[in-house]
Computed example of a mutant assay.
Amino acid sequence: MPLTLTLSKGVLSLGAEKQAVAQITDAMLKWHGLTGNKVMTPNITATVHVLPRESTFSGGKEFSGAWVEWKTPSFAFASREIQQGFFADATNIIHELSGGKQPKENIYVNVVHTVDGAWNLDGQAMTNEQLGEAISKG
Rank of each mutant, 00 (worst) to 15 (best):
L3I: 13
L3C: 06
T4L: 11
T4D: 09
T4Q: 09
T4F: 05
L5N: 12
L5R: 12
T6V: 07
G10D: 08
V11A: 08
V11M: 13
L12W: 00
L14E: 13
L14M: 07
A16W: 05
E17V: 03
K18R: 14
A20I: 05
A20P: 15
Q23F: 07
Q23A: 12
D26Y: 00
A27L: 04
A27H: 03
M28H: 11
L29Q: 11
L29K: 04
W31K: 05
W31N: 11
H32M: 05
H32R: 01
L34R: 08
L34N: 08
G36I: 04
V39M: 13
M40T: 15
P42C: 02
N43F: 04
N43V: 00
A46W: 09
A46R: 13
A46P: 13
P52R: 07
E54Q: 14
S55D: 15
S55K: 14
S55W: 15
S58G: 05
G59K: 12
F63S: 15
S64W: 11
W67D: 08
W67T: 10
W67H: 05
E69V: 13
T72C: 09
S74V: 01
F75M: 07
F75S: 03
A78P: 06
R80M: 02
R80A: 13
R80C: 07
E81A: 05
Q84L: 13
D89R: 06
A90W: 01
A90Q: 08
T91F: 03
I93W: 11
I93C: 07
I94T: 15
H95T: 03
E96L: 01
E96V: 01
E96W: 01
L97C: 09
G99Y: 01
G99K: 00
G100Y: 07
G100P: 10
Q102R: 10
N106D: 11
I107M: 08
Y108M: 14
V109Q: 07
V109A: 08
N110H: 10
H113D: 03
H113F: 03
V115I: 08
G117R: 04
A118E: 11
A118N: 08
L121S: 13
L121G: 10
D122V: 13
G123V: 02
G123M: 04
Q124R: 14
A125N: 11
M126A: 14
T127H: 08
T127K: 09
T127N: 09
N128V: 02
Q130L: 02
L131C: 09
G132P: 08
E133V: 00
E133S: 02
E133I: 01
A134L: 07
A134C: 12
G138K: 02
